[in-house]
Nucleic acid binder design. Sequence first.
RNA 1: GCGAGAGUGGCGGAAUGGCAGACGCAUCAGACUUAGGAUCUGACGGGGCGACCCGUGAGGGUUCGAGUCCCUCCUCUCGCACCA
Length: 831
Amino acid sequence: MQEKYFAQETEEKWQSNWEVDGIYKVSEESERPKFYLLEMLPYPSGRIHMGHVRNYSIGDVMARYKRMCGWNVLHPMGWDSFGLPAENAAIKHGKDPAEWTDSNIAYMRKQLKRLGYSYDWDRELSSSSPEYYRWTQWLFLQLHKNGLAYKKAQKVNWCPSCMTVLANEQVVDGKCERCDTSVNKRNLEQWFFKITDYAQKLLDNLEKLSGWPEHVKTMQHNWIGRSEGMDIEFRLVDVDGSLTVFTTRHDTLWGVTYLVIAPEHPMVDRLIAGKPNEAELRAFVADVISQEDMERTSEEAEKIGMFTGSYAVNPATGEKIPVWIGNYVLMEYGTGAVMGVPAHDQRDFDLAKKYGLPIKVVIAPEGTEGEALDAPSAAFTGAGVQVNSAQFDGMRSEQARPAMAEFLEQKGYGKRAVHYRLRDWLISRQRFWGAPIPIIYCDKCGEVPVPESSLPVMLPKGVKFMPTGQSPLLDCPEFVNTTCPTCGGPARRETDTMDTFVCSSWYFTRYTSPGSDTEPWSRRKADYWLPVDQYIGGVEHAVLHLMYARFFTMALHDIGLIGVEEPFTRLLTQGMVLLGGSKMSKSKGNTVDPDEIVERFGADTARLFTLFASPPERDLEWSEEGVEGCWRFLQRVWRLVAQCVNAGVFSDGVRGAAMSGATEGERAVRRAAHTALKKVTSDISDRHALNTAIAAIMEFVNSLYGLKDDVIATESGKKVIGGAIEMLILMLAPFAPHIAEELWADTGHDGSVHLVAWPEVDESALEASTVEVAVQVNGKVRDRIVLPASATEQDALAAALMSEKVAAAVAGKAVRKTVFVQGKLLSIVVG
RNA sequence: GCGAGAGUGGCGGAAUGGCAGACGCAUCAGACUUAGGAUCUGACGGGGCGACCCGUGAGGGUUCGAGUCCCUCCUCUCGCACCA
């Protein structure tokens, strides 16, 4: 066996063997417990990038490890293949989106296969294929049937570059999440999913997701934004009707000196009609509405307002208070109207100061009841003691709150209410390359769902793309014009398509039943595999994909289509791959091409480096030298095994991993093997600390190099070394599957190393006859002494006092106390 | 402002409250070589000839013992942010 390893030919050989033998295919018919391991569905942009390599390498280690541990592992791969880039390529280069997408998929599939991931490729799916989007449409119809999909006109986010509307989650800092263009608002009639019905459940279930990172749960928690308070009704004075405000501080109700409503509020017209300055008011309203959201809602933006000329009555005090229109009140949140409490809310305070509105203190900081009534210089927003609040005076505000709620509800002035920041999910897109929304409009029958038997509503071929801001399907008469399923009369199809996040909200369920063409999935199979036991992907989807998929799963559960409520039991969010401190990206030009790394070093090296350089959850700085280091390590492993093979370690057959060991050297080899195994096993399964698992294997290899020459000289030593080498290959298998497979064969084994059981730690092998113990005197390490492993505290102290250094530190003082940590440390306190 | 996370050698990073810096990279020295950008051996936080002293963002505290736990700050990253 030669001492140099040539990765490329070996890797390709095993990749084709694996494929021919189908060793990663799984079915439900298994005695083994199931484990569903999934990495987030990639978009087929054209080529894979290092972020993909890292994501899938992490997943592949876990999949291979779990498989070796005896689990029936489902590990599939597919494509999130609808979306804008395909359409942009169509517009720019005249390519058919389907062809562009398919050729990207073909290339990327080849890249993934070249990296040797253990996917069950028979389950591959592509969300843009009619076989898949047929069921996306079918699921839309189920949601529609159950009142969870509806159409309404609303002011929505519009990305002028993508020429489509966006969901709230897809707007980051006022910019399009995808292309970074500033979004603006348009009033459009759009399709929504009623995710707000699940706001409370999405929030409550977070507590059950103990396998999710805290920061992701926090982000979802904040995004859902539950707040508890009261809706309080203020009767209007000269106008019919009332205004309802939402407040979390009804303890400040007696301090309300005015109301403020959003310029978009439906009551605005009635409140300003006929007022002397009506024209001026209308101009003000129009001006505020026309402002971009960012300039209107940024914290620095000045609070401006205008008196409507109308009044309302504070139900608590009976006082007549003015109704204002303010730029800082948002129609989309709460009721679009707020009560102005300048003494206890900084925004209200700013407005009151600016326009000379009265300020009335009703909460005094503890111990300042008398003086607090003077004109404050800023709003006091903390808790305190009620003043000026009729029968509630003197109560602490926290206690006043429930008492007041009770009082207000009894009087019929308001009711306790919960509002969420979460809005319904806007799913329609004015683009071609998505799943058409299966709805038909008929002049007679109105909005009619496409019958399930007519699915899929296919995307037409040969569409002309013109970025007009309307779906290209509109210019496609053969698509638009149809007949009404109900009355048979002429009708038009919906031309908007679905947000691609809809496609990725259920794909993990489709993987359980690939190719099913009579139903989206087999209930039996889905029940067997779901939920996903371990999900891996980037944190950028914390409130996008991960929340949409949770909503979808809950909804499908409640409709009765699926057995689980939460799709992902454990979640690992892997960090980004950086080069020169910033995320690799084409636009910055700081990318490293996986193909090039595979070509130079092989897939095993590429995988190993992305796993070794940093713990999975943290960002990883790409380093050419680091990659070379991993390559050197694999060569070092190869050389070690080759030298053993050439020395005849395996000449009389395989070793079966069991090792006895009589001499000190043999025991040391055995100890090194099982120490490494113990660390690697717990690092993979408990902590997902793949970087330290690899470090432990490296240490193991280093110690084998040191021990081998002595031990290998005898027949018994050969057996011990052989067993250790087998363990090394098994431990390496999840991380560097190709070289492990080749070495497994070269050491005389039949069959794939990836089907061999993960070895078990032999605790007895870990025991050493002697241990080194650090000796501290008053907390400082003074010496290290070697003791028999069985030494007691007394033995240790006696031995320690024999040490010159320890004796010097103790000299002349009395030993007051000792602390002994078996095998590690002796702490002597003197004084 | 609110919430979450992080600050450790020249670098990436290790350390159930128990010998700080595992493992790797870079660097230096040596060996082997016609050669070495291969490989092997060794050194590698700072100071000091030395015994020793100092050292995990800063300052306190708990403890026989603190990178780790507690308190007060500082810096950075991420998320939310006029949400009533």
